[in-house]
Design a protein around this nucleic acid. Structure first.
Lengths: 135, 135
DNA sequence: ACAATTTTTGCAATAATGTTGCAAAAATTA
DNA sequence: TAATTTTTGCAACATTATTGCAAAAATTGT
C-alpha cells in the first residue's frame, strides 16, 4: 500500500494511507462525501480535497463524471503516469444500488467524428443494473 | 420559440423565453453560470435553477456530465418527451475553446458488457479540438 | 539518532453553489 | 375582467469547495 505512495514520490502519511485503503477496500467508485463521512476516517474536509487532488494528479485515482453534478473517484488499475491517465475503460453506474464500477476490460470504442473534429480522449458511462442487483 | 413552451404545457414567461433564446443562440452547451452571469439576463439565481430543472423535466434541454464537477445543458434536437430523453448522441468538448458541442449525428455505440450487467442508457464524451479551433 | 528542511495537516475565514418557504407579481382560465 | 393557478424574487439557510497560515508530521542529510 505504502509503495504506491512511495512510487509516486509522495510522503507517507496517515490520511493518504487511510484514503488509499478505502479505495482498495471498496468495490465501486467513491464520492468525496463517501470519504469525508466515513466514520473511521476522521480527518479534515480540506485534507480529503487535497489528498484526492494529489492522487488524481499522480495518476493513482481517476475521476468519473456523473450526470448529477458529483464527481466520483476510482483507483486506476493500470499504471497511470503523472497526469496521464489510461482511463480508457467504460464506467458502469447501477441504477439500483447506485454503485459505480470500473469495467476495466471494456474499452471505450472509437467513433467517427464529423469533419474537422480531432479527438484526444473519450469517456463512456453506461447506466443499468449491475451483477449484484440481478437475482 | 413560444410554441416550444406551449407545446410542453408551460406558462409563457419572460425568463423562460430569454433562457430558451440563449440556448438557441449559443452553438455549444451552457453551464448554469453562463446563464446566470449573462449580462442581458437579469433574473434571480433561483429562477435560473428552477427554469433549467423544468426544461430538463420537460425534455427541452438535456444535461451533459463533465469531469470537472459541473453540469452543462444543451437543447434537445429531437423531440424529447417528458423525462424521456433521446440523448443518444456523443458530446464533444473542445480543449481549446472549452465549448461543448452536441454531435447530434454521432450516436453512442453499443458495447458488450460483462456477464450479469444489464445496460439501460449510455453516454459518451469526447475531448479534443473542435472544428473552429483548427486552422 | 538528531537537527534542519520540506511537506502536509487542520483550523479559520471566505467563496461559490444549491435549496426551501413564502409573499408579491405575472400568467392562465373561465 | 375577476378568480385561480403558476411563477418569480427575496431572504434565509444548507452544502460544497477554496485559500492563507501556523502547527504538526515526514523526509533529508549528517
Amino acid at each position: 500500500m505504502e509503495d504506491i505512495l512511495k512510487k509516486n514520490g509522495l510522503s507517507i502519511t496517515e490520511s493518504r494511507k487511510k484514503i488509499l485503503d478505502l479505495f482498495t477496500q471498496s468495490e465501486g467508485a467513491l464520492a468525496h462525501a463517501d470519504i469525508e463521512n466515513h466514520t473511521t476516517a476522521g480527518f479534515d474536509r480540506v485534507t480529503v480535497y487535497r489528498t484526492l487532488q494529489t492522487f488524481v494528479e499522480k495518476g493513482i485515482i481517476h475521476q468519473i463524471p456523473t450526470i448529477d453534478n458529483s464527481v466520483l473517484y476510482a483507483l486506476c488499475k493500470q499504471a497511470c503516469g503523472g497526469g496521464h491517465h489510461h482511463d480508457d475503460h467504460v464506467h458502469f453506474i447501477c441504477a439500483q444500488c447506485g454503485q459505480t464500477i470500473c469495467l476495466d476490460d471494456v474499452l471505450v470504442p472509437e467513433v467517427k467524428l464529423p469533419r474537422g473534429f480531432k479527438p484526444a480522449q473519450s469517456s463512456m458511462t453506461v447506466t443499468g443494473t449491475c451483477k449484484n442487483c440481478r437475482d
